[in-house]
Nucleic acid binder design. Structure first.
Lengths: 238, 238
DNA sequence: TCTATTCCCGTACTACGTACGAGAATAGAG
DNA sequence: CTCTATTCTCGTACGTAGTACGGGAATAGA
């Protein structure tokens, strides 16, 4: 049996993964640690994107043989799960809620956005359902505390948390994709030429008109805040 | 040179991919078609998820050799792009805008949600930036027409379109992930046990309280509508 | 009929996730 | 100290990806 509590034939359950620390006080001592491996994987993803996070690459980064990783996580998907919870640790908030839960919620959302922009692989990693690890639970706990003064019941609070995260994820995904294009003048120009060509042939009058406007910049930051305000200010009011 | 206009060393640009039809009136006649290949890939993804959409599998489905696909799309990523635009064809709306642009916009969003639920691989495919193909452009054109009566300027209209899509994508991603868990009683039970254990140890009082509530169902449909209304009703008002 | 062009696709290369199992290190029992 | 059970390490190897390459088949105009 390996370091995690994996045993049966089905995938690792949240209980095996997150609960019960290690009791093995015999046999060879581990040369690495889940922490170190996870951190290395996160560093890789931050620097070069999720696609370079391969078992071989992570192992090399840590100085381990490839197969050694499997003593710390049963498969790559689980490693991703560990990565997500790892970075969620950065969202730890110690300030107690101010009492103005709407303002606090906006702060939370802004934190999440900044967080995802710092770890641009997060939206993709969050696409498939993840069981909340300790850091994610701590963050959830904080959001629930923020929502305490609201009139929402338990289920609604959890729903607000999920929806807010979904909103931020959707927004940031788009923001990141956009930024990726902007980073390449080549692609930006090609896309502009393409859209201009489409607008020019007369079949898309509305698009032509929208594109002909002066095209002021519209900072992503301001846009995010605007939509966020819409969403939150209406919460609790029906 | 192959069927698409690919030539240089950089990736396919939108112009090569979407504009100019085929002029090749010589040489062997194509045995397949971009349409058929794309449709087969979509059918696969709909039925069994994006991960079974491999070049080998699609080729087999169509009755082609694997490498033949590369005459119709320069790489797998482009095939994904074709798939996205292909299904976006289903979003073609012929009804003219009613004049109540908020109501129309809500209709559009509901259409998008239904669409993504029917093609659950869409959120993942939309994560990386896609240049809008003809069907996507037609849909965009419709949304812009819907927004005509609003006071928003061109850039703002485009922004609303992007944000709305991002919102729906975020929401549906979460909805799909949730549904995936619910489909397995095994996983659902494991997760419930895990959360109960976490709540029981006293370190997460807010979570414990939220979980102790009667847990009424909260249909995803109603939740979506509620948040959507928040977002749209506030649009144009500042 | 010849030739240029276009498409078809078998072979093969690299890179991935990971199953298997042999060997190394360690802790307790005798 | 020695023996043994346990735990971790990792080389090898298998199956499956995406796709580069290039030879052969089909077609259209000369």
């Amino acid at each position: 049996m390996s370091r995690d509590g994996r045993s049966g034939t089905e995938g690792v359950g949240p209980e095996e993964l997150w609960l019960r620390p290690g009791e093995p006080r015999r046999g060879r001592r581990p040369s690495f640690s889940r922490e170190a491996i996870t951190a290395a994987a996160v560093a890789l993803a931050d620097a070069q994107g999720l696609e370079v996070v391969t078992m071989r690459r992570v192992a090399a980064e840590v100085g381990a043989g490839v197969m050694s990783l499997y003593s710390y996580a049963p498969d790559k998907d689980t490693l991703l799960e560990l990565m997500v919870d790892h970075v969620t640790g950065e969202l730890a908030v110690t300030d107690p809620p101010s009492g103005d839960w709407r303002a606090d919620l906006k702060t939370v959302a802004r934190l999440q956005r900044a967080h995802m922009l710092r770890h641009p692989w997060l939206p993709a990693a969050l696409l498939t359902h993840r069981v909340p690890g300790p850091n994610t639970l701590a963050f959830l706990e904080h959001v629930l505390a923020v929502l305490r003064p609201s009139r929402l019941d338990g289920a609604a609070k959890l729903e607000v948390f999920a929806q807010l995260t979904a909103f931020v994820t959707g927004h940031v995904s788009h923001e990141i994709a956009q930024a990726a294009v902007s980073r390449s003048p080549e692609r930006t120009a090609a896309e502009a030429r393409y859209l201009a060509a489409v607008a020019a042939d007369g079949s898309h009058p509305q698009l032509a008109e929208a594109l002909s406007a002066p095209r002021r910049p519209l900072s992503p930051d301001a846009t995010f805040t605007r939509f966020l305000n819409r969403l939150i200010d209406g919460l609790d009011t029906d």
